[in-house]
């Protein structure tokens, strides 16, 4: 699909509102406008479920004498966000030419901790040693102690090998780059998509969200426009740390674009098979 696809209506616009990049929150807020609800929601869905990241998928236990069971530990390891900036360089295992997994489609991480001290040894993501230069557990600066994986008492040890693979949250939530995607349109309920439950007064019982400032309030005597469609979508994308939120949005857009173009391509093929006579009219596309 070419860039002129949306050109007819000057195309959807993204207005960046805020970028937070602190150890506590990594998020990006923006207004997506001049597009329809379906597209906006599709972007939301793609960002949550289809932006690929890296996550530990296989765990081979050499020894585990901790109090946590193997499967429980493996589950915990899977949920650890790995820095996935380089996820583009990795192929999906299912698309790789190798037999099981290989450096092209996986990253190996090692966890080998043994408690020899008298006090409890906390095993954190800092102990996870990656074989890749950048695909490794996310850490926020040198003071970050990492995510706690397990605690060991004297004499206990964990020795295991993890295989991180590329994947999407469609398959398992551990591959989701998003912690949450806030999504809102029509903060003043101008479109009357919803009916608020009220006891006395809408204004006092339903605080207008922060996004209300971008749209005019509904005047008391304003006539209801039943043809109106939502146009501006207020979104905030908060990442898990695996990917930069900006990256999530751009990747999301790219994936959405690729999907749409695939649809277009396939439709075109169908049309050509039928002899290019009855070309179905497509809204916005031709």
């Amino acid at each position: 699909m070419d860039a002129t696809a949306f050109a007819q209506e000057t195309g959807p616009t993204i207005t960046l509102l805020e970028v937070k990049d602190s150890p506590e929150t990594r998020s990006v807020s923006f207004i997506l406008s001049k597009t329809d609800l379906a597209t906006a929601n599709a972007l939301r869905r793609v960002m949550i479920a289809e932006v690929p990241t890296m996550a530990i998928d296989l765990v081979e236990f050499e020894s585990n004498t901790s109090v946590l069971t193997d499967e429980f530990l493996a589950h915990r390891l899977g949920l650890i966000p790995l820095n996935s900036e380089q996820v583009g360089t990795i192929t999906y295992t299912r698309e790789c030419s190798c037999q099981q997994y290989c450096p092209q489609c996986s990253v190996e991480l090692h966890l080998n901790v043994r408690c020899t001290e008298d006090h409890t040894r906390e095993v954190t993501t800092r102990d996870l040693v990656s074989s890749h230069t950048s695909i490794a557990p996310v850490l926020n600066g040198p003071n970050d102690r990492g995510i706690l994986i397990a605690k060991l008492r004297k004499g206990q040890e964990i020795n295991l090998r993890c295989i991180a693979k590329k994947g999407t949250a469609k398959e398992h939530a551990k591959w989701s780059p998003c912690a949450g995607v806030a999504f809102e349109y029509d903060p003043h309920n101008r479109l009357r998509h919803t009916t608020y439950w009220i006891e006395d007064d809408v204004k006092s019982e339903w605080p207008v969200s922060a996004n209300g400032r971008f749209e005019p309030e509904v005047a008391e005597d304003e006539p209801f426009d039943y043809n109106a469609k939502p146009e501006a979508f207020y979104m905030t994308v908060e990442g898990t740390g695996a990917l930069d939120p900006k990256e999530i949005v751009t990747t999301g857009l790219r994936i959405l674009q690729a999907k749409l173009s695939l649809v277009q391509l396939l439709l075109k093929e169908i049309a050509e098979e039928r002899g290019a006579v009855a070309r179905p009219p497509m809204n916005g596309f031709h």
Partner: peptide, 26 residues
């Protein structure tokens, strides 16, 4: 709840995950 910026009665406007449309009722 109101202090935290939420509706007093515990309701919230919610959106369909499939269409993205806001539900008729909170």
């Amino acid at each position: 709840l109101a202090k935290a910026g939420f509706n007093y009665h515990g309701n919230e406007p919610m959106y369909s995950g499939i269409t993205g449309q806001e539900f008729k009722a909170d």
